[in-house]
Structures are given as structure tokens and as C-alpha cells.
Design a protein around this nucleic acid. Sequence first.
DNA 1: GGGAATGTTTACCACTTGGTAAGTGAATCG
DNA 2: CGATTCACTTACCAAGTGGTAAACATTCCC
Lengths: 213, 213
Amino acid sequence: MAAVITSPPKGSRAARTRATEDRILSVALESFGTKGFDSVSLDDLAADLGITKQAILYHWSSKRVLLDAVIDRAALELIIEFDGALSEEGSGWSRVESIVRRIFRVAMRRPELLGFIREISRIGGDASLRVTADLEPFVSRATTYFEREMDEGRIRRCDSGLLLVSAYSTVLGAATEVEVLRAVGIEPTLRSTVVRRRELLSFLHAAMVAPQG
Amino acid sequence: MAAVITSPPKGSRAARTRATEDRILSVALESFGTKGFDSVSLDDLAADLGITKQAILYHWSSKRVLLDAVIDRAALELIIEFDGALSEEGSGWSRVESIVRRIFRVAMRRPELLGFIREISRIGGDASLRVTADLEPFVSRATTYFEREMDEGRIRRCDSGLLLVSAYSTVLGAATEVEVLRAVGIEPTLRSTVVRRRELLSFLHAAMVAPQG
DNA sequence: GGGAATGTTTACCACTTGGTAAGTGAATCG
DNA sequence: CGATTCACTTACCAAGTGGTAAACATTCCC
């Protein structure tokens, strides 16, 4: 709704400006996520966009400020991708399954998004704090969800925070550690992806699901 | 044994040269692993070492060639850290447990080593190929080990390559994704590390151990 | 002991980096 | 329509980049 109110007449200057900023953020996210923040110069970015670096610096006063904007964008997109899965129908294992499928879809179609979060973690400092703050609402929702599932005995009882981290790194790892996969002789094809997802689901199932009784 | 034969008289020029190269590789591994290859300039490196960058370029003709040397060093250290675990006494779950403990020890004491491998994976190209080639013997040993354990029914049957990747990313993730841990409210202290290791072991146990029968 | 090989430094270079200043053409508005 | 704001470009700059050339000090070897 806010979007409707604030969105100016189509084709207006303000609208085109926002479209440009959007394009810049999008390309920056992809580049930072795949090559790393320091490995991408403003000139590189500008060249990809077909503009000059000063155009970028017009919208954000420094590369560091641009990074903050990209962080916010990445967190937003992550939440959009995953938050829905938490609200979906079903419960217990079937819901976990749908979350894993969704994560896999993101990892396959938007690897730069997950790579970017990882990159930010390494930069540390303010950047990490920012992404942490951005994701906090989502993390607390996920944790709450896990707690409830445990209370109702649908998954094994354990530290919900660690469960989240374990699930996150397991899936993210299996989906993105392409080089490691190559090292063990798995070329990342669509077919092998399906196989890996199936294996991973059974791995997680064994790990998470409470022994029924 | 080879070391004895090739090692020159103590304090000789050759020995000191090798010590210098060793120091450079060590500092480079730490810096590249924590800050990233592109984020560390030769001047930075030299400053940390108390020498000039030209001294570095004397031993390796370019920054890229230095990277190759650092990759070899990292792979060697990784193998030294982990390979022993595969030959240890015990079998089945107890051995897995000892491997996990070892990985945790490395992740805690030498995070830059694992961070470096991850960094290299992202750089891609020749660098990735090199680390893959360096680690191949170790990977094939680990895979063989898993296969045997499965044959003898001590762990669940599944794709051994994926099992390796899953175990690797789960452990590496839980041990190194500090920012994610912070996001879920776990400050990385020694105490929390112990807790996390215990949780992880139970997670892995449920996932890997074959239902007895 | 003297010349040669070796490891390191000083001096330098072309190029790239993030960032500034001033200018320009088009959309906007009174 | 004319002034102004806006989005962007051209022209720079100082600092830092990886890398080269040559001078220099030390160790080695005959």
C-alpha cells in the first residue's frame, strides 16, 4: 500500500530515477555476491551498467554507502524468498521439506544472493551488524517456528538457534559449495541437483524428525 | 626423510631463505583467508612482515604466483590436520566423532585456513582447479572410508560424495558462520562452542548412523 | 681474500582506485 | 516561456596497485 501512495506517475522523472537506482542495486548485488566487495570497482560496476561511476556516486555518496543499500536490498529479497515458506500450509516435516525446496530454488537461481550474505559476514564490522539487524525479524520468526514444532513433538528437541544454523549451513553448503562438489566428482548439473536435494532431504529428515512414538 | 636429505646446514643461507618464504606464505595464508585475496595488497603483506613488497616478488614472480604457492600450502596443512583422523583407531561412529572434534579444533584455532579454501572457491578458474587437484587424494581417501563404513552397515547408506559435502558444510558452517550465529543470538565463546559441538554431534549422529538392527 | 651468487632495498613506473568539481542537456514548474 | 532542479557526464586528482630496474649488502665458494 505504501508503494501505491509513494509511487509517482508512471514514466515520471522520479520513477525513472528509482528504476536506475534499482538497476544499480541489482547489478551491484550480483557483482558483490559473486566476485566480492573489494574485487568490484565502481568503474566495473558502471561499465556493466553502461553508465559512468559518477552516476553511481550521485545516488550514493560513497562505495561504502552503496554497500549498505545493497545489504538492505539483499536482506529484503532473502526475506521475500523465505518468509512465505514459514507461513505455508502443512506442518512438521512437510513444511521443512517445502522450505528446503525453496532454499534450493534460490541457491540455484540466485546464488549471488547467498554468496553476498557470506561475503558480508567476512567483511565484518558495521556491514555484518547491518545485515544481522535486517534479518532479525525473519530469524526470530524461524526460531519461533522451530520451537513450536519441537513443543508439539514433530521434530527432535534441541537448541533451536543451532538447528537453524545447522540447517542453513547444510543446505547452503550443499547448494553452493560448487568447488567442493567438483572435488568429490559431482558436476553441478540439473540432474545431479535433483539427486542432491533428495539425498539432503533424507539427511535432514533423519537428523530432525523426532523418533515417532 | 626427504626433509633430512634436502635440509641444508642449520643457519645456512638456504635455510634462512626457506624460513623467510615460510613466513611469507604463513602470513599470506592468514591474510588472504580472513580478508580475501583482492583485499590484501602486496604492500599490506610486506608491512605485516616488516619487509618490502619487492622482497616478496623476489621469491614469487607475481601476486598470482604467490597465490598458487599459498594454495599448495593451505591444502598441505588441511591434509595434515585431517588425514590423520582417517587412520585413527576405532571405527564407525566413534571415528566420525573424532573427525568432527578435529575439524572443530581447526575451525576454532585456524579459521583462516577454512576461510581461505572458501575464498579460493569463489575466485574460481585456475585457483579452484589447483586446490581441487591438491585435495584430490585426501577426498578419495575420505570417500573410500565412507563407502567402507556403509558396506559394513555402520552408517546409513547414501551417496558418499554428498555425505562428505554435507558433513563438510554442516561442520564448517556451524564452526565458521559466526555472523549467522550472532544473528540467532549465539555469541561465539568457548563455552558456546562446546555446546554447539555437542549439538552438532547429535545432529550428525541422527543423520548418519544406520538404524541398528 | 676476492669475485660471484643471493636476498633485499631504494627508486621508479604505468595504471587503477574511490572521490571531487564543474559543466550539460532535459524534464519540471511557476 | 524562462528559471530551476535534476540526473548525469567530462575532466580531474591524490593515493594506492602490481610490477620493473638497478643499487646494495651479505654469504658462499675457490
